[in-house]
Design a protein around this nucleic acid. Structure first.
Lengths: 339, 339
DNA sequence: AGACAATGTGAGATCGATCTCACACACATT
DNA sequence: AATGTGTGTGAGATCGATCTCACATTGTCT
């Protein structure tokens, strides 16, 4: 039944009684081709279900119509949303999307990138694991492979980027907690290698400093960005003699982990502890109380990055554009006044 | 600075003063190569940072070390988890992962598949959109391209598959609702083209039938699998004169949608309505009350599928294996006794 | 008529890696 | 001496699409 091998241009040319060159011209409409000939070729191609081998095309012109996307973790709804948006735009532009998770390991990011580069992939969207260790990214720039940094920027890597105002968002959250009378404010954060972690940490510290609250290491817990790890970290943080009276979590998975941890410890929100999370999530308004969050425009980020990438791919060469979205404090019910 | 073009085998051969053939032998260790020569070649390759062009290799041997993965929607945590697990295993096997969302559109699935096939991609893991419209999948089988169906099977497509006991899970859920005294039991489900929808629907109907409850179309709402759509569908379902007293939702996004809808309508769980969802989710135990669910072993599904695929890719040719995981009713607090 | 476009087509090179084949040498066996 | 066997190497073909070039035809203009 089905051809065991997909039809090649040679097959089409043979069926249409022309040379490969002519067949190529007819199918890609360039150069001179007689009307009659063109029709014959089209017909032959249709009959054989000719599709063209993108691999061979890519080998010839040096580039594969695939964009590479290296994110922290597709399981994080934030990155899932971004991946989805990028995929949609890529498809519209005739590209496919290769996805890799760095799992926040620099080594994995580097080897993933190398592996994708050996595929002659055309452009990359990367959420770099490390804010400063990034020779591999600089390598891309040096060879002028289009690269868009997303969610995080990397020092010394001069290219388009799309991030949000992490520092401002964190500052607003902590300022709000302070205004509500909290002084022992916990921070549940990601690894400090990560750009967003640093910025959110800075916002946290700035707000504390402005209020004259001395930094206290015991108020800070580091956790991987999964619900499970966040549960553990929260439990550690709140098992101390004098635990925080409020907690600021740096992403939605951690917020959820904190919620579960509080429930398991019998700590009630907002009576015993107040909570603000960075990044809104679906059930934030279903929990009781509803969770106050710093929201970021998730639906814009992936699309903005994809648009920047496809601009580059279609030849734009202006100076790198740095997009930074605003964040917004959404006050709901998880923070109570203290004292 | 950086080479503008990555080094090719020719470059390596030239630097080592041997032919391309010999260089290839030295690097891939096959055939006869003198020790001295081999060392020279290795050195040259190292010096040039030779990586090998996977595209050219793929063109030569007809296959690209990439697996294609076409799922309903990466944003669904269920699929995100699966994609993640597949990616991890793929990486271990030296493969990369191309991801596409069918967005539950058959046309998109077909064109995505065609596009990936023209890349000479080696194997596919697909969650087919449609249970019966699947010539494109049969085409893969006919040309013996490895294909694993995941979460859903497709009629007439004889290949490895990994699914869960949807019918049994749905039946258990509805039987439980019936046992708790409910007779007007709503079903919030996906499009009926989708395999899991059909099976879960069947389980629902079977349970009703066994209890002598007549099917009632007004108890059934169809929605896309997103929180937003599920909110709307739930509101429609419960705006009727005589709404259901209990609701069974077929996936976790819909469950969340239902929760939000109930909250917005002022309907309280489990007093005014009882709820069971298919597929467990992180916050199911945080909501008040905790949500009773039918759980499926999400962490197994992607890995099982990936393992099946890599078995095929390494040449296994036994009869197709059909994996079906059990589902489990986890009773929490979202169902109340009626009457 | 002769020259010069405009139109159409095919042969062959190219992208990079790999594999078959042929060839060359060394040494051992009859 | 003739034949064989084990080593080691390079030339060239191949995968499929595309592009350059050369070569035909026509038609048009001086």
């Amino acid at each position: 039944m089905a051809r065991s091998k997909p039809a090649t241009l040679k097959d089409v040319a043979a069926l249409a009684n022309v040379s490969r060159a002519t067949a190529a011209r007819a199918l890609n409409s360039y150069g001179y081709v007689g009307d009659e000939t063109a029709r014959k070729v089209q017909a032959a191609a249709g009959k054989l279900g000719y599709r063209g081998n993108r691999l061979a095309q890519a080998l010839r012109n040096g580039q594969l119509p695939i964009v590479g996307c290296i994110l922290g973790d597709i399981q994080n709804p934030f990155f899932a949303r971004i991946a989805h948006d990028i995929e949609v735009l890529a498809r519209e532009c005739g590209y496919n999307l290769v996805i890799g998770s760095s799992e926040e390991e620099l080594g994995q990011e580097v080897s993933l990138l190398a592996s994708l580069r050996s595929l002659s992939i055309r452009g990359f969207i990367v959420a770099p694991t490390s804010a400063d260790n990034n020779a591999h990214l600089q390598g891309l720039i040096a060879e002028s492979v289009p690269l868009i940094l997303i969610d995080r920027v990397a020092e010394g890597v001069d290219c388009d980027s799309v991030v949000v105002d992490n520092e401002g968002g964190a500052r607003k959250a902590v300022e709000y907690l302070i205004a509500m009378g909290h002084r022992r404010i916990g921070l549940l954060q990601d690894d400090m290698r990560i750009f967003t972690s640093r910025e959110r940490m800075t916002g946290y510290q700035t707000a504390l400093g402005a209020a004259g609250i001395a930094p206290d290491e015991r108020m800070i817990a580091v956790s991987q960005s999964t619900v499970e790890h966040a549960v553990d970290a929260t439990i550690r943080l709140f098992s101390q003699k004098t635990p925080p009276t409020a907690l600021f979590t740096v992403d939605s998975l951690m917020t959820q982990g904190a919620l579960l941890a509080f429930r398991s410890m019998g700590i009630s929100i907002p009576h015993n502890v107040s909570l603000i999370g960075f990044d809104d999530f679906n059930l934030a308004t279903f929990t009781d109380p509803q969770i106050t969050v710093v929201s970021q425009p998730v639906s814009e980020i992936g699309r903005a990055a994809a648009r920047l990438l496809f601009d580059r791919l279609s030849g734009k060469t202006d100076a790198p554009r740095k997009v930074r979205f605003e964040t917004k404090l959404i006050v709901r019910g998880s923070v109570s006044r203290r004292g």
